[in-house]
Amino acid sequence: AEKTGIVNVSSSLNVREGASTSSKVIGSLSGNTKVTIVGEEGAFYKIEYKGSHGYVAKEYIKDIKDE
């Protein structure tokens, strides 16, 4: 049951290796980017990222929809 969301930041949002603010940053997404959410862990969504997965803070994702 995948969902999509939109990155809701003015600059960019860090994509992390794990569901923690201390996890390594593996990339970033600019505002209004559409993401595919494959799961959630605590305050983070697990998303599809560059052929693999990454984690982003839930508070910066809006317009969550079921695909």
Rank of each mutant, 00 (worst) to 15 (best):
S12C: 08
D63V: 14
F44P: 00
Y49W: 11
T21Q: 13
S10G: 11
G27H: 02
T4W: 05
T33Q: 10
G27F: 08
S11H: 10
G51S: 07
N14K: 15
S22D: 11
K24I: 08
G5F: 03
Y60P: 02
G31I: 09
Y45A: 02
T21S: 15
H53F: 15
V7L: 04
G5R: 04
K24F: 05
A19W: 05
E48W: 10
T21M: 13
E40I: 08
L29F: 04
K3W: 07
E2Q: 14
E40R: 05
G39Y: 03
Y49T: 02
V15H: 00
V15C: 02
T33K: 05
I61V: 11
Y45C: 03
E41I: 11
G42Q: 06
G54I: 01
E2W: 05
T36Y: 15
D63E: 15
F44W: 14
T4V: 11
S22Y: 08
R16C: 05
K65F: 09
K46I: 13
V15A: 01
S23V: 03
K62R: 13
N8Y: 05
D63T: 13
E67T: 14
V38N: 04
I26P: 00
Y49L: 04
E40H: 06
S28T: 14
F44V: 02
A19P: 09
E41W: 08
E40K: 04
D66W: 07
E2V: 14
G31P: 15
G54L: 01
S11R: 08
E2P: 14
L29M: 05
V25M: 06
S12Y: 15
N14R: 10
N8I: 11
E67R: 07
T33I: 10
N14H: 14
S30K: 14
L29A: 02
G54R: 02
A19C: 04
V35N: 00
S30E: 11
G27N: 02
S22G: 13
A1K: 06
Y55Q: 00
K46L: 12
S12T: 15
Y45P: 00
E17D: 15
E17T: 06
H53T: 10
I64F: 10
V25L: 06
E59V: 12
T21K: 14
S23L: 03
E41H: 11
V56C: 03
I47V: 06
E59G: 07
I64K: 05
K24D: 06
K58T: 04
E59M: 14
Y49I: 03
E67F: 04
Y55I: 01
E40Y: 06
I64V: 13
K62W: 08
I64G: 06
I6R: 09
I61P: 01
Y55C: 00
K24Q: 12
E2I: 15
A57F: 14
N14G: 08
K50I: 07
E40S: 07
L13G: 04
A1I: 15
R16H: 15
S10A: 13
S11W: 08
V56L: 04
S23R: 04
N14C: 08
V15E: 00
G27A: 04
E2L: 15
T36G: 05
E67Q: 14
I37M: 03
V15D: 00
S30W: 13
D63S: 09
K34S: 07
S23D: 07
Y55G: 00
I47W: 00
V9L: 09
K50L: 12
E17N: 09
T21P: 15
I64R: 04
S52K: 12
K3S: 07
E2S: 13
I64L: 11
I64A: 08
K50F: 09
S11N: 13
N8E: 09
V15L: 03
Y60A: 14
Y49D: 01
V7E: 02
K24R: 12
E48Y: 12
H53V: 14
I64E: 07
K24W: 04
K46Y: 08
I47H: 00
A1D: 11
K65D: 10
N32M: 13
E17V: 08
D66G: 09
T4L: 09
V9F: 04
S11K: 11
K58P: 01
V9H: 12
D63K: 10
